[in-house]
Each structure stands twice: as structure tokens, then as C-alpha cells.
Computed example of a mutant assay.
Amino acid sequence: MESTKKVTVKATINASIEKVWEFWTEPTHIKKWNSPSDDWHTPSAENDLRVGGEFCSRMEAKDGSFGFDFGGTYDEVKKYEVIAYTLGDGRKVNITFSGKENETEVIEIFDPETINPVEFQQQGWQAILDNFKKYAEQTNL
């Protein structure tokens, strides 16, 4: 199942761009929101947020049945605007942040992998983004 179509997920977070950026990029926060559902978690996260820097988040099922490293290398970083990276398998991801007053829109566009259905991937990435929105809106700086 080969696909060259890019996939988009987005959310509007009721928080300032500064807060959204910090919560999106700081490993202590990433570990608290980076999961698609309550039965998954991110026990470790590393982030060297600069062009050429690398990141890695360990995502695992809480019951220990499955886990994987999600990581790559940054291609572009513009504070409060854009994060673009290449995953370990060569797929590209572009994230834009657009803030206005106390509201920030986050849009992620990514190349899907070829193992799982595109709809499944879009649902998973959207679930993680929705979890981020919930965390950012309910957690104080």
C-alpha cells in the first residue's frame, strides 16, 4: 500500500503561543501528553531542538505488550512558528504554530508510513494532538 499523499491533523489550543511552544518542546512536558490513549505513555523523551539536532520519544503500551522509539532529526526550527523534521525512516513532518492572543493553532503535516492504513495513522496522530490540547489547556506553567 504505497501512498505519497501527505496527512494533516490540527487543533486550536486555548493557550498562548509561548506556553504551547514550551509544552510541545520540553521533554518533561512531552512525557505527560505524548500518547494517543490512556493505555499508552511516553516514559522517556529527549529533544535537541535545533537544526541538525535529534529527538527521541519512547512510546509504550502501559501493559508492556508493545513499545517503539519515535525519533528523527530537525530540518527547520523557527521559534513559535515552525518545526520540521525527518523521521528515522526518511518520512517528513512539518508542524506550524500560529498564535493570536490566547489561542494557538497547531497544524501537523506528515508523510504516512506504508504499513498501517492512512486513516489509522491520521486518527492516531490526531489523538496525540488532542491529548496535547487537553494537557496544555489544563496545566499551568
Results as ranks from 00 to 15, higher is better:
His29Trp: 06
Phe66His: 10
Ile109Gly: 05
Tyr135Met: 09
Leu87Val: 08
Lys10Gln: 15
Thr114Leu: 07
Gly67Asn: 08
Thr86Val: 13
His41Leu: 05
Thr96Gly: 11
Lys134Cys: 06
Asp38Arg: 08
Cys56Lys: 13
Glu108Ile: 03
Gly90Thr: 04
Gly72Gln: 08
Lys100Leu: 15
Trp33Met: 02
Lys92Ile: 11
Gly52Val: 00
Pro36Met: 11
Phe68Ile: 06
Tyr74Ile: 03
Val118Leu: 05
Glu105Leu: 11
Pro27Cys: 08
His29Val: 03
Ser44Ala: 03
Ser57Gln: 13
Lys100Pro: 11
Thr86Asp: 09
Thr28Lys: 14
Gln121Trp: 11
Ser16Asp: 14
Gln122Met: 07
Lys62Glu: 02
Val7Thr: 12
Cys56Pro: 08
Lys133Gly: 00
Ile128Met: 12
Pro117Asn: 11
Lys31Asp: 05
Lys100Phe: 14
Phe23Pro: 05
Phe66Gln: 04
Thr86Glu: 14
Thr96Lys: 08
Phe120Glu: 14
Asp111Thr: 07
Lys78Ser: 09
Val93Cys: 10
Lys62Thr: 03
Ala136Asn: 12
Lys32Gly: 03
Val20Glu: 02
Lys6Glu: 12
Lys19Leu: 06
Asn140Arg: 15
Asp75Lys: 13
Glu81Asp: 12
Asp75Thr: 14
Ser57Met: 15
Met59Asn: 12
Leu141Asp: 14
Ile83Glu: 10
Gly67Ser: 11
Gly88Pro: 04
Asp48Lys: 10
Trp40Cys: 00
Gly124Pro: 02
Ile95Pro: 07
Gln126Phe: 06
Thr73Asp: 10
Thr12Arg: 05
Lys78Leu: 09
Val20Leu: 03
Pro36Asn: 07
Lys133Asn: 01
Thr25Met: 02
Tyr80Lys: 05
His41Ser: 07
Val7Lys: 04
Thr73Met: 12
Ala127Asp: 13
Met1Asn: 01
Gly99Asp: 06
Pro43Glu: 01
Gln123Ile: 06
Val82Pro: 03
Glu18Gln: 12
Ile109Glu: 12
